[in-house]
Computed example of a mutant assay.
Amino acid sequence: MLFVNLESFDSQDYARLQEAVTFLKTTDLTTTPLGRSHQDGERFYMQTLEYDTEPIENFDFEIHHHRLDLHYIVSGEERIDVAPNTNYVALNPCNTDRDLQYVQRPAVFNQVLLHQDDFVLIGMHEPHRTNGVISTPTHVRKVVLKLGR
């Protein structure tokens, strides 16, 4: 499943998806170290995260200007909200070191419920917030592949 808004879709942004899926299938993600790893210059890196989910309203929407986010659930489950409309209102300047900018809550967004072995690919400039509880708080192990061009 690929869910995007046609106006913001750039097929070049998704050219590296097959490489990312191959990485997910051939890497033991239960043993990767927490934090950033598997860096390949500006093209690619992985963040391994572990946390307990919380009410999604506790989190702000964010965007990235230079990388796609592929969120893959190794264990647990979480809700992610994503707005395919890239017309956002910035709340702060972009943190260029982290390629991270917080934005106002979009008027319209979609709820994506991810369970073990599910992933969602979030495009550049697409507002999203993560770590949301689905029914009861759950411990999550997740990897986020940061895909540059």
Score class of each variant (00 low, 15 high):
L6W: 11
S8I: 01
D10N: 15
D10P: 02
Q12D: 12
Q12R: 14
D13F: 06
R16M: 07
E19Q: 14
A20N: 01
F23G: 00
T31A: 10
P33Q: 11
G35C: 06
R36Y: 03
S37V: 03
Q39D: 12
Q39T: 14
D40C: 08
D40R: 13
Y45S: 02
Q47G: 01
E50S: 10
I56A: 09
I56C: 02
E57M: 01
D60G: 13
D60W: 01
F61A: 03
E62C: 06
I63V: 15
H64E: 04
L68R: 10
L70W: 03
L70F: 10
I73W: 01
I73H: 08
V74S: 04
G76S: 04
R79A: 12
D81C: 09
V82T: 02
P84W: 10
L91E: 10
P93L: 02
N95E: 13
T96Y: 13
D97M: 04
R98D: 12
L100S: 05
Q101G: 09
Q104R: 10
P106S: 08
P106I: 02
V108C: 07
N110G: 02
N110E: 14
Q111Y: 05
L114A: 09
F119C: 07
V120T: 07
P127M: 03
H128S: 05
N131T: 12
I134M: 07
P137G: 08
H139E: 11
V143Y: 00
L147H: 00
L147S: 03
G148Q: 06
